[in-house]
Amino acid sequence: MENKIYQAGDIVYVFYRNPHTQDVANIQAAAVVNNPEITGGLALFLYETYYPLSNELALYSSQEEANQAYNYYYGNDSEGVL
Protein backbone atom coordinates (compact mmCIF):
# COMPACT_ATOMS: atom_id res chain seq x y z
CA MET A 1 0.00 0.00 0.00
CA GLU A 2 3.08 2.24 0.04
CA ASN A 3 2.02 4.15 3.19
CA LYS A 4 -0.93 5.76 1.40
CA ILE A 5 -3.97 6.28 3.55
CA TYR A 6 -7.11 4.96 1.92
CA GLN A 7 -10.69 5.79 2.84
CA ALA A 8 -13.94 3.95 2.24
CA GLY A 9 -15.16 4.95 -1.20
CA ASP A 10 -11.73 5.15 -2.85
CA ILE A 11 -11.30 3.29 -6.12
CA VAL A 12 -7.97 1.51 -6.58
CA TYR A 13 -6.49 -0.78 -9.20
CA VAL A 14 -5.01 -4.22 -8.50
CA PHE A 15 -3.59 -7.15 -10.41
CA TYR A 16 -6.06 -10.01 -10.33
CA ARG A 17 -5.27 -13.56 -11.34
CA ASN A 18 -8.07 -15.59 -12.83
CA PRO A 19 -8.66 -18.48 -10.39
CA HIS A 20 -9.30 -20.80 -13.35
CA THR A 21 -6.27 -19.70 -15.38
CA GLN A 22 -3.45 -18.80 -12.99
CA ASP A 23 -1.05 -17.68 -15.72
CA VAL A 24 -3.36 -14.80 -16.70
CA ALA A 25 -3.24 -11.53 -14.74
CA ASN A 26 -5.47 -8.54 -15.40
CA ILE A 27 -5.78 -5.08 -13.97
CA GLN A 28 -9.06 -4.69 -12.12
CA ALA A 29 -10.69 -1.69 -10.47
CA ALA A 30 -11.78 -2.36 -6.89
CA ALA A 31 -13.42 -0.35 -4.13
CA VAL A 32 -12.05 0.38 -0.68
CA VAL A 33 -14.92 -0.24 1.75
CA ASN A 34 -15.55 -0.60 5.48
CA ASN A 35 -14.62 -4.12 6.49
CA PRO A 36 -17.82 -5.91 7.53
CA GLU A 37 -15.82 -8.32 9.74
CA ILE A 38 -13.55 -5.85 11.56
CA THR A 39 -15.07 -2.76 13.14
CA GLY A 40 -13.17 0.32 12.02
CA GLY A 41 -11.15 -1.64 9.48
CA LEU A 42 -11.04 -1.30 5.72
CA ALA A 43 -11.27 -3.96 3.05
CA LEU A 44 -10.87 -4.23 -0.67
CA PHE A 45 -14.12 -5.25 -2.36
CA LEU A 46 -13.45 -7.20 -5.55
CA TYR A 47 -15.72 -9.66 -7.33
CA GLU A 48 -18.22 -9.81 -4.46
CA THR A 49 -15.44 -10.68 -1.97
CA TYR A 50 -13.88 -8.65 0.85
CA TYR A 51 -10.08 -8.69 1.24
CA PRO A 52 -8.67 -6.99 4.37
CA LEU A 53 -6.35 -4.12 3.44
CA SER A 54 -2.74 -4.89 4.29
CA ASN A 55 0.74 -3.94 3.18
CA GLU A 56 0.84 -7.22 1.26
CA LEU A 57 -1.55 -5.83 -1.37
CA ALA A 58 -0.17 -3.86 -4.30
CA LEU A 59 -2.73 -1.12 -4.84
CA TYR A 60 -2.49 1.58 -7.47
CA SER A 61 -4.31 4.90 -7.29
CA SER A 62 -4.76 5.29 -11.02
CA GLN A 63 -5.26 3.09 -14.03
CA GLU A 64 -2.15 4.64 -15.63
CA GLU A 65 0.00 3.74 -12.60
CA ALA A 66 -1.35 0.17 -12.66
CA ASN A 67 -0.66 -0.12 -16.40
CA GLN A 68 2.95 1.01 -15.91
CA ALA A 69 3.48 -1.54 -13.14
CA TYR A 70 1.78 -4.25 -15.22
CA ASN A 71 4.08 -3.54 -18.16
CA TYR A 72 7.09 -3.59 -15.83
CA TYR A 73 6.21 -6.96 -14.27
CA TYR A 74 4.52 -8.72 -17.19
CA GLY A 75 6.08 -7.05 -20.23
CA ASN A 76 4.60 -4.62 -22.69
CA ASP A 77 1.48 -6.69 -23.35
CA SER A 78 -1.77 -4.75 -23.53
CA GLU A 79 -3.84 -7.85 -22.74
CA GLY A 80 -3.92 -7.00 -19.02
CA VAL A 81 -4.75 -3.36 -19.51
CA LEU A 82 -8.25 -2.17 -18.67
Score class of each variant (00 low, 15 high):
residue 17 R to Q: 15
residue 33 V to S: 01
residue 54 S to T: 09
residue 39 T to Q: 01
residue 23 D to C: 15
residue 19 P to A: 11
residue 45 F to D: 01
residue 55 N to A: 10
residue 49 T to N: 10
residue 32 V to E: 01
residue 9 G to S: 08
residue 29 A to K: 14
residue 4 K to M: 10
residue 73 Y to S: 00
residue 21 T to M: 13
residue 17 R to E: 15
residue 55 N to W: 09
residue 45 F to C: 01
residue 34 N to A: 03
residue 34 N to G: 02
residue 66 A to I: 02
residue 9 G to L: 07
residue 71 N to M: 04
residue 31 A to G: 06
residue 78 S to K: 08
residue 51 Y to M: 04
residue 19 P to T: 11
residue 41 G to R: 01
residue 74 Y to G: 00
residue 62 S to V: 11
residue 62 S to K: 09
residue 77 D to C: 10
residue 8 A to K: 00
residue 31 A to H: 03
residue 47 Y to L: 06
residue 49 T to Y: 08
residue 18 N to E: 11
residue 5 I to H: 14
residue 28 Q to H: 11
residue 81 V to Y: 05
residue 64 E to K: 11
residue 27 I to L: 11
residue 49 T to R: 04
residue 3 N to L: 13
residue 28 Q to N: 09
residue 36 P to H: 09
residue 10 D to Q: 14
residue 52 P to D: 01
residue 34 N to P: 05
residue 76 N to W: 08
residue 57 L to M: 11
residue 29 A to M: 11
residue 52 P to K: 00
residue 22 Q to Y: 14
residue 4 K to S: 11
residue 67 N to A: 14
residue 64 E to P: 03
residue 48 E to T: 07
residue 62 S to H: 10
residue 57 L to T: 01
residue 57 L to I: 08
residue 78 S to Q: 12
residue 34 N to S: 11
residue 22 Q to A: 15
residue 59 L to I: 08
residue 34 N to T: 01
residue 37 E to I: 01
residue 28 Q to Y: 11
residue 22 Q to W: 13
residue 15 F to G: 02
residue 30 A to G: 13
residue 66 A to K: 01
residue 59 L to W: 08
residue 16 Y to Q: 12
residue 75 G to D: 10
residue 38 I to C: 03
residue 5 I to R: 13
residue 53 L to Y: 05
residue 77 D to Q: 10
residue 9 G to K: 04
residue 21 T to A: 14
residue 48 E to H: 10
residue 73 Y to D: 00
residue 38 I to H: 05
residue 36 P to I: 04
residue 22 Q to C: 12
